[in-house]
Simulated scan of single mutants.
Amino acid sequence: MALKLLMAVAAGVILSGCATRYTPAPLAANFPASKQAKLQATYHWGIVADAVERQLAVALKKTPTRPIFINTPAEPNPFQRALATQLTTALVNDGFTVSRAPAGALKIDLDVQTLTFAANRPQYRQNFGQRFPLADGVWMAKELSAPRLENEPFDPLDSEFAPGATPRTEIIVTISVSDQYRYLARSTSAYYVADADYALYGLTEPEPENTKLTRVFKVRGDL
């Protein structure tokens, strides 16, 4: 036993001595595990609007009372249009004056940045995937090796997690309140969105996953 321990310590010393101390670029490392909400219904858009309004309200109540004008894009996509409408409702219900014209009002700008990541992005899932009853009130959790399919029923143990693969599509939502001189309040948040709903967020259809490149070769000489 002592010999095995000594050999393990020696191996650790050797490996630590061989570790790279200098590299031409930083070593790639993972962030700590985190969660990001996936938007899958217009009800979820309302939750986003309410969360944004609560953040902005804290700052707006510290500024001199002025009407608020929501500056929507000239041709909003369905998500931007719904977000502006729901944010207007939330502000009015919270006692703010929302103006229909920009003159003399603070301006709220809505910026939605859409992103499409690679089709083969990493797929990390929750630890628990299925439960099996052992006795009354006693369950055994079994990890699934593959992601749960879209049509599989939710289990109370893992219903917190969205079904299916990690989406390729994400959005960054930034809401800014400003006058002609400065920003008075700002909120930024990021969300997954279902890949099939890309058009609702102003995205064009993502490229097919199995896109093949065609090359033309020129042959010289007699055949």
Results as ranks from 00 to 15, higher is better:
L5H: 06
V9Q: 10
A11H: 05
A11P: 00
G12S: 12
I14H: 02
C18Y: 10
C18F: 11
A19S: 13
T23Q: 12
A25T: 12
L27D: 08
A29D: 13
A33D: 11
A33K: 04
A33C: 02
K35A: 06
Q36D: 06
A37G: 02
L39I: 15
T42P: 10
T42R: 15
Y43S: 14
H44D: 15
H44M: 05
G46H: 06
I47S: 13
V48Q: 05
A49D: 09
A51Y: 03
L56M: 03
A59W: 04
A59K: 08
A59C: 05
K61H: 09
K61V: 05
F69P: 06
F69D: 05
A74W: 01
E75H: 07
P76E: 10
F79V: 06
A82F: 12
T85Y: 07
L87A: 11
L87P: 02
T88E: 03
L91A: 10
N93E: 10
T97Q: 13
V98T: 05
S99I: 07
S99G: 03
A103T: 12
A105K: 13
A105E: 02
L106K: 15
D109I: 04
D111L: 14
T114L: 04
T116K: 07
R121C: 00
R121H: 01
Q123I: 08
R125Y: 15
G129R: 00
G129Q: 03
Q130I: 14
F132L: 01
P133Y: 11
A135W: 03
V138M: 13
V138S: 05
M140L: 14
M140S: 07
K142H: 12
R148P: 12
N151I: 09
F154W: 09
P156A: 03
L157R: 02
P167Q: 06
R168A: 01
I171F: 04
V173H: 05
V173Q: 10
I175F: 04
V177A: 11
S178I: 01
S178Q: 07
D179G: 04
D179H: 05
D179M: 08
D179N: 12
Q180T: 09
Y181P: 00
Y181F: 10
R182K: 15
R182H: 03
A185Y: 05
S187K: 01
T188W: 14
T188R: 15
A190K: 14
Y191D: 03
V193T: 06
A194W: 03
D195A: 09
D195M: 08
A196R: 04
Y198R: 03
A199W: 07
L200G: 00
Y201N: 06
L203H: 02
T204A: 11
T204V: 07
P206A: 03
E207H: 04
E209V: 12
N210Y: 13
L213R: 14
V216W: 02
F217T: 10
